[in-house]
Every structure is written in C-alpha cells, then in structure tokens.
Amino acid sequence: MTGNEYRRLYAESPEKAYAALFKVYCDYVYAIVYNKLNRVAQREDIDECVSDIFADIFFSYKRNGEDYADLKAYIGTIAKRHAINSYRSLKLRSERFSGDSDEEFASFADDTDIETNSDDRETRSILISKINELGEPDSTIILQKYYYDRSSGEIAEMMSMKASAVRMRAARALEKLKKSLAAAGIML
C-alpha cells in the first residue's frame, strides 16, 4: 500500500483506510515491536505498543493529512521509535520494582543491552539465510514456533493447516536447521 492508495481509501472511508493499512502492515509492525520488546515485555505490553503505533499513524494522517512518499518507511520509523520507548519504559518499570516480590517485574530485571555487535549480526545473518533455505511453509513455521513462540494450534490457524501437520513439519524443519547451522559452526 502506498501513501496515495491510503489517501484514496481514506477519502472513501477512513475506517476502510485504517483497516486496510492495518492489514497490510500489521505483521511488519508486530515484527518490529516483538523484536525489540519480547525479552522484557509481556504479550499484553507488546499488543499495547502495536495498537499505540497504529493509533499514532491513523491520528497523524487524520490530523495533518500528510502524504507519505514512502509509507512503509514512515511506519517502520514510527514503530521502531515506539518500540524503543516502550523498551525503556518497561526497563524503568522493572528497575523501580526491583526488589519487589511481584514476579511480573522480576523477568524484566536483567541488563539486556539492545546494543548489538558484529558477531551477533553475522550469526543472525547466517541463521536467517539457513531458515530461508528451508523453503516455505517450513521457514515461516519455524519462525512462528521458535521465534514468536506460537503453539502448533495457533500456527495451524494462521497457515490454514492441521495442527498435527504443523508439529511434524516444525520438528523436522528444526532438525534440518540445526544440522545446517552446525555445519556453519553455529549451535542452536
């Protein structure tokens, strides 16, 4: 979806435009937020952040009527910034509550550093290439199950497959991935 398409839809019906934009970019925004937050956030926090991002995007257009030359880049920027802000807020929350017996915050109390280093980057790059080599639908199933932590039933719903088929494919794909990565010197 481009900025022009969004504008045209908006003129017809703002609700339609919102729904269409959400449909197209939901997975993208979720990926950005989940990637930044999942170590410190509960699923509800991630949902909250994603909905905040879309509300901001809808609001920005509604209020300013801006034309976004590159809508995806714009959305990506907004999402990333929101995610980083949420990360910081959650970290602060965990620090404020450190020493508190509330288990909800105990999981935040690590010193996860969002800085990355070159070794990590290289490992990730190899990992993604090996996942891609699995081909579809296995590469998506692998990400859904072992990165997004979704159940086989949920994946089955998203992929229009049977849960048993997802379980089987996920297990086989994981084994294949482990071997492939081991050959590249990476242990899962």
């Binding site: 950005i32 990637n35 990506g76 990992l127 993604i128 859904q144 072992y146 990165y147 997004y148 932590d149």
Partner: peptide, 27 residues
C-alpha cells in the same frame, strides 16, 4: 526465556532481519 524460543538470537536484530521476521504471527 521461554523454552521453545530457540531462535532468541534474532532479538534486537537489524532492520533487514526484522523485515524477514515479518511473517504472520497473529491469529
């Protein structure tokens, strides 16, 4: 960390990686 998140090394990744992670993850 949840036991099934064996791909946690993909956390806090670069933009191109995140783009690849943009798969259906919600029902």
């Amino acid at each position: 960390m949840r036991k099934d998140r064996v791909l946690n090394m993909l956390d806090n990744a670069e933009d191109n990686i995140v783009e690849r992670l943009s798969v259906p993850a919600l029902t």
